[in-house]
């Protein structure tokens, strides 16, 4: 399989077929900010923070780089006025849900996002799905799931599974950008009353 040549921020990058723009950028040391991305997990495209500008066949488009496959002669820009604005708004929206998330605050500083623009509505979970996907894809335990839909969507530990599996694992805890996950775990623990088994 021949390599695909593309340009990211004016730098020529070689990539293999099937790679995403994000993979290609990371492999050549170009930084694209991400939130819901994790190298061990399938791309999710939930947070859209990794949005970049791609130019292919004369058209400019804004895409999530963690999902967009590399193409020949693709021209990618990871920073521009418009991208910064997109990321800023996204971060502001996420901050409305998780005003004190360290990861978000750091990005907010970079992109000049202020959390006052949208009303605060702290649900503390930004639904990045890292915990749910890590549990399902890497640990194959499925102890945590999304429940409900639309604005009521939230993460929930399934007590039947969590009481058996979670105590000795807790590998999802450091993944959470907002620390809400730990709270959800303790809440489930409190409601169902399971402990070290």
């Amino acid at each position: 399989m021949s390599d695909i040549l593309l340009t990211i921020d004016g730098k020529e990058v070689r990539a293999k077929e099937g790679m995403t723009v994000l993979n290609a950028a990371q492999s050549s040391g170009i930084f694209i900010p991400t939130l819901c991305h994790h190298e061990k997990l399938e791309p999710y495209g939930g947070c859209r923070i990794c949005t970049v500008e791609v130019e292919s066949r004369g058209r400019t488009n804004y895409v999530a780089s963690c999902l967009y496959p590399v193409e020949k002669n693709l021209v990618v820009r990871t920073r521009s006025e418009k991208i910064d604005k997109i990321r800023k708004v996204l971060i502001e929206l996420l901050l409305a849900h998780a005003p004190d998330s360290p990861q978000l605050l750091e990005m907010a500083k970079e992109y000049g996002a202020k959390s006052v623009r949208f009303g605060k509505e702290p649900s503390f979970c930004v639904l990045c799905g890292l915990c749910v996907r890590y549990c399902a894809e890497v640990k194959k335990k499925n102890a945590i799931a999304f429940v409900d839909q639309g604005p009521k969507r939230e993460i929930n530990f399934i007590p039947e599974i969590a009481s058996k599996e979670c105590w000795n694992c807790k590998e999802c805890f450091p993944l959470c950008p907002t620390s809400y996950l730990q709270a959800a775990y303790v809440l489930t623990q409190g409601l169902v009353g399971f402990k070290n088994s």
């Binding site: 399902a136 499925n142 102890a143 945590i144 799931a145 999304f146 429940v147 409900d148 839909q149 929930n156 399934i158 039947e160 599974i161």
Partner: peptide, 13 residues
């Protein structure tokens, strides 16, 4: 199918 998946579906629709 994992119980979490079944619950995901049952609460979604």
């Amino acid at each position: 199918v994992p119980l979490s998946e079944v619950l995901h579906i049952a609460t979604f629709y």
